[in-house]
Simulated scan of single mutants.
Amino acid sequence: MENTLPVSHAALLERTAETFHQAYFIYHCGKHQMQYLNQAFREVVGLSREEALADASRLLQQVHPDDHSFLMEQYQKLQGKGTQKGIEVRLVLPGQNLKWVCLSVTVLEEAGERYLCGFAEDVTLRKEYQNNILKFNSKKNSTLEILSHDLAAPFQNIQGMMGMLETEIESASPATVELMDYIKENAKKGSDMIRDFVDNEFLESSQVVLHKERVNIIQKLTIMMDNYQHLGGALLEKNFVAQLPSEPVYVYLDVMKFMQALNNLVSNAIKFTNDTGTITTSLENLDNSVIIKISDDGIGIPEHLQPVLFDKFTKARREGLHGEKSVGLGMSIIKNIVELHKGNIWFESHEGQGSTFFVEVPKA
């Protein structure tokens, strides 16, 4: 069918882009100049078309200092791949809060000239929404683990006390024995129900599809440990310590899955650390990767169980110090999540001295 749109269709496209807050641009690679910017550009980027057309370098001045090197890396990738989608950077605008902008760019050639063509859109509200979800998800995970340990303990105490009563009451009537068995059985069911609920939350979070984004891993680890310090310090009678760099460290992760894996490592440390013990999270920032360490001064892992620790339904599964049960899936799922991020996990452990788990993942 022949195109019947009038010549003014360009103006309609301009208005459409403005309605959806999409800032379209064309950049001449040889001249290092912007050749075209639509009307929505100022609203999205915070710089007038006239200013950007006169000096394209002013756009880079708007970018958050922590994102400069990242943006340059994406530019280099763009030269090789030809197209880059979903490049998210922060802009620092005078008198405003940080703004998140998502760029999608392609390299096009015309008449021997090379251009970068694409669009930018304001994704600040979406990023704030995602950050709130992640924050509350982290608190939910920590709270569940704390409650699972704290609530399971009374059930275990009931079971233990009923066992003591059985030895004390040798000549109890059949009705009394039946009642004591009923109490023991229901205490065990209650304890198992709590642990099953937490385990199911972890299993549901470990689906294989990753949705990776660039995140400040220091911020996420700080939130996780703060939750344990503030919510679990008194209830669990353990010390939670975060030894983390003060500067941001950026890594590409599926935040929910990755942080759930780390949360599960902390949970394991809780299970096998005595009351008043210490659980520490630290991070080593390398050139191309980060190594996250979760250590405890607990009972450690017996040497004969260490080779099979990461096996599915492993024989290394053990009850926790307060009787927390294990189905032997947790460590294999953690390993799977780390490997999906192209990372590695290993550990060092000595009986009676504690354990340290190392998780290394690439930054990009």
Rank of each mutant, 00 (worst) to 15 (best):
V208T: 09
L210P: 11
S8M: 14
F358E: 01
L321Y: 13
G323I: 05
L253C: 00
L71M: 12
E168P: 03
N137T: 10
K257G: 07
E43I: 09
S171D: 09
N344C: 03
R42I: 05
Q76E: 11
N274P: 03
G277D: 07
L144G: 07
N263G: 15
P307W: 12
L12R: 08
L305Q: 15
A52W: 00
D226M: 12
N97P: 07
A172Y: 03
N336Q: 11
S349T: 13
N227G: 02
M162G: 07
M162E: 06
V198H: 10
V89H: 02
E51P: 02
M180I: 13
F347L: 08
I133A: 03
A52R: 00
N141M: 10
L12K: 12
Q306P: 14
P65H: 06
L262V: 12
R49I: 09
K212R: 10
E360Y: 00
N157T: 14
D226L: 15
V7W: 11
N131A: 08
I294Y: 01
E237P: 01
V208H: 09
G46D: 02
A11M: 09
F310R: 02
V361T: 02
N141H: 07
N263V: 06
E178N: 15
V63C: 06
E43F: 13
A111Q: 15
Q79S: 07
K342Q: 09
A120M: 13
L151E: 04
K363H: 04
N186P: 10
L78V: 09
V107C: 13
Q159D: 08
F155A: 14
K293Y: 03
E145C: 11
G112N: 06
I218F: 04
R42Q: 12
G233T: 05
A40S: 07
V105C: 15
D150L: 08
K257Q: 12
F25D: 01
K85E: 13
F25V: 00
F155V: 00
G328F: 06
A17P: 05
L309W: 06
L165M: 09
G354T: 03
K293R: 10
G320N: 04
L253K: 02
R58K: 08
I299C: 06
Q207H: 12
V266K: 00
L103F: 14
V105N: 09
E43K: 10
H32M: 08
I169G: 06
G80Y: 06
S295M: 05
E339K: 03
I270M: 13
C29N: 05
L265M: 07
V361S: 01
S8D: 12
V338Y: 00
T16R: 11
D199A: 12
N344F: 00
V107E: 10
D196Y: 15
D66W: 03
I292E: 00
M161F: 13
G112H: 05
G330Y: 02
F272E: 01
E2V: 12
F357Q: 02
N3H: 06
R49P: 02
K127P: 15
Q243I: 07
H64A: 04
L329I: 13
L134A: 11
K315Y: 14
Q159I: 14
V209W: 05
N239Q: 08
Q130T: 10
D226T: 13
K238A: 01
S173L: 07
N137W: 05
M224E: 04
A11Q: 11
R214A: 00
